[in-house]
């Protein structure tokens, strides 16, 4: 170990020391936390994820899963009329096994060992659960897309069409997992903001994914399926908004709300809830009131997709802030925030 390297290994941004050492444990240094901190140093470590890369994967994976799920629903409900939607759903579902998986491997710190994820299956680890959800979703969606593409070249081979159809249901079920497991992944950590509201965050991620999926499928679709998908997107956005209200209420109750006072908190409130949820809700409502205006509907779709992506990135970044602030993590880790009943899961 050369000396030069050892110096570079020091903390990137050393915390600002208090004026005198004895003030380290002096109380009342934050208006959210009356108790002591250790020189203002973080109590837990923030996740070493690249928020744009992993946030991008969570968005793309959710979009792909929701598209597969909604395409299967449209096919069951509408049959041949939904054929363009099904085709688009197959194309969108390819985002997860290609770009999405690539982003995940890129974020590993030893990427050449990515296959070690396939060594085990662990119900206590949402990352392991997610690995297998992604693997099976990729398998079913690739199978469906490949069979559908091949059946256009070889229309006489009817088993190709049947294969594409048969892959739809398992792709839809695993697709539902793709929309949600990422919220469980963030919640099953000690990062205060993510751990504070496991239930409502999962509803947010799931409904935001479905809104993004419906928005992407309905864009440019002038038919009856497209109009109905606009309604689905509106409904999912409403569910997202309700879950957002519940989340913020929980953040206030458990004391992690100060983590949303920073820049990323503003992005979460104004960008995600304002421009990414309320605005497209209004646009979709206006579009539907006029018997569907393609321009308004497309605009709403773009806002929904951007809001869905920013929800993930801002949640990750604000989570990092909550981990880096000892006042937030100390306030969160108080006995009154302990679960009321001991869990029945995973006894050892």
């Amino acid at each position: 170990m050369s000396e030069r390297l050892a110096t570079e290994l020091g903390p990137k941004q050393p915390p600002v020391p208090p004026p005198t050492a004895s003030q380290a444990s002096a109380p009342g240094r934050s208006r959210h936390w009356e108790g002591p901190t250790y020189y203002g140093r973080p109590q837990v470590k923030a996740a070493p994820f690249n928020n744009w890369v992993v946030g991008g994967y969570i968005f793309l994976g959710g979009l792909a899963g929701a598209a597969a799920l909604l395409a299967a629903v449209a096919d069951r409900a509408r049959g041949p009329e939904a054929a363009p939607t099904v085709r688009r759903g197959r194309a969108l579902s390819m985002l997860a096994p290609t770009l999405g998986a690539g982003l995940l491997i890129y974020d590993l710190h030893t990427p050449r060992r990515f296959y070690n994820m396939l060594r085990v299956a662990k119900p206590t680890s949402p990352m392991s659960i997610g690995t297998w959800i992604l693997m099976s979703f990729s398998g079913f969606s690739i199978l469906g897309a490949a069979a559908a593409a091949a059946s256009r070249w070889l229309p006489r081979l009817s088993f190709l069409r049947r294969t594409a159809k048969a892959a739809q249901l398992p792709a839809a079920v695993t697709g539902a997992g793709m929309t949600t497991y990422t919220a469980a992944l963030l919640s099953a950590t000690s990062t205060p903001l993510w751990a504070a509201a496991p239930r409502s965050m999962a509803v947010r991620f799931g409904s935001s994914s479905l809104a993004a999926g419906a928005a992407a499928l309905s864009m440019g679709d002038t038919g009856r399926v497209g109009r109905t998908l606009d309604k689905v997107a509106l409904l999912a956005l409403a569910a997202d908004l309700a879950a957002t209200c519940v989340s913020h209420n929980t953040y206030r109750r458990t004391g992690v709300a100060p983590a949303l006072e920073g820049d990323w908190g503003k992005v979460e409130k104004l960008g995600v809830t304002g421009l990414g949820t309320l605005l497209p809700m209004g646009l979709y409502a206006a579009s539907l009131a006029r018997g569907r205006s393609p321009a308004l509907s497309t605009l709403a779709g773009i806002a929904t997709l951007a809001g869905s992506a920013m929800l993930r990135v801002s949640t990750m970044a604000a989570g990092d802030e909550s981990a880096n602030r000892p006042d937030v993590s100390f306030r969160f880790n108080q006995p009154q925030n302990l679960p009321k009943r001991p869990s029945r899961w995973f006894r050892r």
């Binding site: 119900p123 659960i129 539902a176 997992g177 469980a184 239930r199 409502s200 999962a202 509803v203 995973f346």
Partner: peptide
């Protein structure tokens, strides 16, 4: 942390 997996996945799904 693992105790939050089931409530989160269950409610979300």
């Amino acid at each position: 942390a693992a105790n939050r997996v089931a409530p989160s996945l269950g409610t979300g799904l």
